[in-house]
């Protein structure tokens, strides 16, 4: 803007209309130039977002309503038939149930444990950075590789877990081949992986609670730890906790690597989850229409949660 003012001809009082016209022209030219630059800068990104995000989603929605098979030359609309087939399929209902169970173990488990770890780390001064770093480690380690390690840990004969169980006189199990234990065990690995991530967010939330509030609480007589927790810490942490719940839920719904490496959905579909089904139907069995329908179901669930999260983020400002 400064450059425009500097470029103006000196004001001449007897020619106001001429001046306006020429200024308008200059301004218009500059605006056009700015717009063209902007399009040049944003162009590649916008085109790629359209081709790699928006159009593919439209494509999936389209395919989900057709009978198209990968490689086929023709297709026809079948309306909701793919979805009808999906929800009539007892296997898919089991997949949804498995995913729900997995999520319902991982989310509360992760939240409670990470909250406890964060509060305990915060309650003292020593070794904070060490504990924080160690607990964060699983979140960034290659999950496919760590899953192989978990397999060794859970191995029915040479695994550490069964050796410990035997030593303690407890019954052992073939954890990953037993229909009853496989999903809870995968959920424990899920908690193991997400714990550090949730902890870091909660630690940030704890650090944002004003110190004064605890002082005021002290003077007012809120001086037992569980009452501080109930009356100050947890309410002040509320928005952060809501946020963490949603994000960890999204992570849990996207569980794939451990299932692929450890169980391939078995035994007898006991660990079949949404994303694994999506992968298997779409890319192994090449049942494209069915796979697209699974994808749409997955998308709807994730989108709904993300929108709730965005809503919460909007109202996140709690204090002043």
């Amino acid at each position: 803007m400064t450059s425009i003012e500097m470029g103006q001809p000196p004001v001449q009082e007897d020619q106001p209309s001429l001046l306006h016209r020429s200024t308008d022209a200059v301004l218009r030219r500059l605006r056009l130039a700015e717009s063209l630059t902007a399009y040049a800068l944003a162009g590649p990104g916008v085109v790629l977002l359209l081709t790699l995000y928006i159009l593919p989603v439209a494509g999936v929605l389209f395919i989900a309503f057709t009978d198209w098979q990968f490689g086929a030359k023709t297709l026809s609309f079948v309306g909701l038939r793919n979805f009808a087939e999906l929800f009539a399929d007892s296997e898919f209902r089991k997949v949804l149930a498995n995913t729900a169970v997995y999520t319902l173990i991982v989310v509360p488990g992760t939240i409670v444990l990470s909250l406890a770890v964060a509060l305990v780390i915060e309650s003292g001064q020593t070794m904070r950075a060490f504990y924080r770093a160690v607990h964060f480690l699983p979140y960034m380690a290659t999950l496919a590789a760590m899953a192989i390690t978990w397999e060794a840990l859970l191995h029915p004969t040479v695994g550490l877990l069964n050796q410990l169980m035997t030593a303690a006189g407890l019954p052992t199990a073939n954890w990953l081949r037993d229909e009853r234990t496989v999903l809870p065990i995968l959920a424990v690995i899920g908690i193991w992986q997400n714990l550090g991530f949730a902890m870091v967010l909660i630690l940030a939330g704890l650090a944002a609670i004003p110190r004064d509030l605890y002082d005021a609480a002290d003077v007012d007589g809120i001086d037992v730890w569980f009452e501080r927790l109930r009356l100050i810490t947890l309410p002040m942490l509320g928005p952060v906790l809501m946020f963490v719940v949603i994000v960890v839920t999204l992570h849990a719904l996207k569980v794939f690597d451990t299932v692929q490496v450890l169980t391939q959905g078995g035994p007898n579909h006991a660990s079949d989850v949404l994303l694994y089904t999506l992968y298997r139907e779409s890319f192994q069995y090449l049942r494209t229409g069915y796979g697209a329908a699974v994808t749409v179901v997955f998308l709807v669930i994730v989108m709904a949660l993300t929108l709730i999260q965005a809503r919460i983020m909007d109202r996140k400002v709690h204090y002043q």
Partner: peptide, 19 residues
């Protein structure tokens, strides 16, 4: 456009991008 793309999990895009 950016915000909407941000909402889409990459696994949803796998099938169409594969094609």
């Amino acid at each position: 456009l950016v915000l909407v793309s941000l909402l889409i999990p990459s696994q949803v895009l796998a099938l169409p991008l594969f094609i």
